[in-house]
């Protein structure tokens, strides 16, 4: 085979491998993805399908029984709240009013979180200004 033709063959092989891999990547990622929803959307959504919900912990709603953690989350601006049942590690900053992300599915009227899927965003306390105005 002459060198120019050989190079062309190599290029075609490499490009088709790249296209195949890229296709596989797109396929896997869309297949494995979980939809992100707000608590009020999840309340209206299909039971049984997996969602990732982001919301604020309703103050006073946290309770523990045995190894289970119960709390409610609501939209950032809204009042409808979603009851959550969760097992696994609770991140340290988890508290009333914090913004949390949890993955799970609706089962019997409450949102059952996957084990260890709870993420708490860093508190906003360290962003707000303590007293006084900026000069």
């Amino acid at each position: 085979m002459d060198p120019a033709r050989k190079r062309k063959v190599r290029l075609v092989v490499a490009l088709s491998a790249a296209v195949l891999l890229a296709g596989a990547l797109v396929w896997t990622s869309f297949g494995e993805a979980t939809q992100a929803k707000s608590p009020s959307q999840v309340l209206r959504a299909m039971p049984g399908r997996s969602y990732q919900v982001t919301g604020k912990v309703v103050p006073g709603s946290i309770s523990r029984s045995g190894g289970l953690l119960h709390f409610r989350v609501r939209d950032r601006n809204g009042s409808a709240s979603l009851p959550v049942v969760y097992t696994g590690v609770v991140p340290d900053p988890f508290r009333d009013g914090r913004e949390v992300i949890v993955t799970g599915r609706m089962r019997g009227g409450s949102f059952v979180g996957e084990r260890d899927s709870l993420v708490t965003k860093c508190p906003s306390k360290f962003q707000s200004q303590p007293g006084g105005k900026t000069l």
Partner: peptide, 10 residues
């Protein structure tokens, strides 16, 4: 049009 995310398994 919908926000989806992939986790550690992906």
């Amino acid at each position: 049009g919908t926000k989806e995310s992939v986790g550690p398994p992906f």
